[in-house]
Design a protein around this nucleic acid. Sequence first.
DNA 1: CGATGTGAAAGGTTTCACAGCT
DNA 2: AGCTGTGAAACCTTTCACATCG
Lengths: 208, 208
Amino acid sequence: MKKQIPIPSIERLSSIYMMLEEMEAEGVEKVSSKEIAARIGAQSHNVRKDINYFGEIGNARAGYETKKLKAHLSAKLGFNKPKKACVVGIGRLGAAILFYNRLAARGFSVVAGFDSNVNKLETLQTEIPLFPAHEITEVVRRKGIELAALAVPAAAAQEAVAKLIEGGIKGIVNFTPFVIMPPQGVFIRNMDLVGEFRVLSALSNIIF
Amino acid sequence: MKKQIPIPSIERLSSIYMMLEEMEAEGVEKVSSKEIAARIGAQSHNVRKDINYFGEIGNARAGYETKKLKAHLSAKLGFNKPKKACVVGIGRLGAAILFYNRLAARGFSVVAGFDSNVNKLETLQTEIPLFPAHEITEVVRRKGIELAALAVPAAAAQEAVAKLIEGGIKGIVNFTPFVIMPPQGVFIRNMDLVGEFRVLSALSNIIF
DNA sequence: CGATGTGAAAGGTTTCACAGCT
DNA sequence: AGCTGTGAAACCTTTCACATCG
């Protein structure tokens, strides 16, 4: 299937969805494209176009109904059913992710952690089952895990990625600086802190 | 000053720079745009154009000299002088960043940590000086801190950002889901894990 | 020849402008 | 009047094609 919705739109739609969660919690019943745009830092045209990729849903007079729009996006974006996730590499960062409870609250249940250091697995106190790294493929496949946070040292990244992909992972958030070349159907989001710091440095160096 | 170099180019240039560090460590002396492109997952045209935003530097016959190109980019991107950074919010994630030694190895010295919980500051064992959150503005200004990693709970984000900006911060890596609207001259990079998981979910839901 | 550097074409995204609805 | 939905224009980025250089 070919790409129809631009990736920037998908990113904005995720933000919009988050906004709607907040607004629902605040008890807001109606919302306009302008209000959404102001909250997520975009243009109202943009918001309307993004929402419209999934068909008409708003009311010309009154904007969007918070609840209805949220349910609509949830269905279209696939946020309605909880997804299983795992953490690979239980160092400081990996542990922080493992215990990050906003994930579960937002529909991502972390059902496994992996580390190559077996001692570490034994000493950690957690409800989440932990496994040695060589079991990645098998566990991911057996549990039907779709998403992974990769927080291993750079040197271990390549092998871990190969195992995740072999197990049928669908998406990886990559905290390492290692560049992943995913096969068709596997998506990557890079979150390398040094890289981000460098982009910020370069921006303030070049633009000012 | 107006934008001349596209942001995607700046992002790629950061990757290229990282590649060059690796290659220099491996002892590679010459490199072509094709080789760089293959490593960072881009097109060779793209790499050449990116590099050329900073003027001619390659040899038509032999490609680029690793060392020379690296020094060139380093100067243009502002990676040659170390920059000071701080971490705001010393929870699990904040602590992981505080102790992440690849930062220092890449020219970012973390010179301060902040948290609103004063007890926490006292119990943490670290060489890096820690301060209560209400001192953010003063410390950032006094030490000349340019970059911040924001790892506070969402509810505390707004106030922390205001203090950082008042202190003269130039860039923020935002780990919270809070949307930051920066003033002119302050740059933001968002790294919200839930947001990234959602984008991945949406991608595999929509594209397949 | 095999590589860079670069104007021109293609492709994709954002912005604009306004028709249409309530 | 105020808002959505949407074709068209403007803008930006990537890709192409090739002149040029050692």
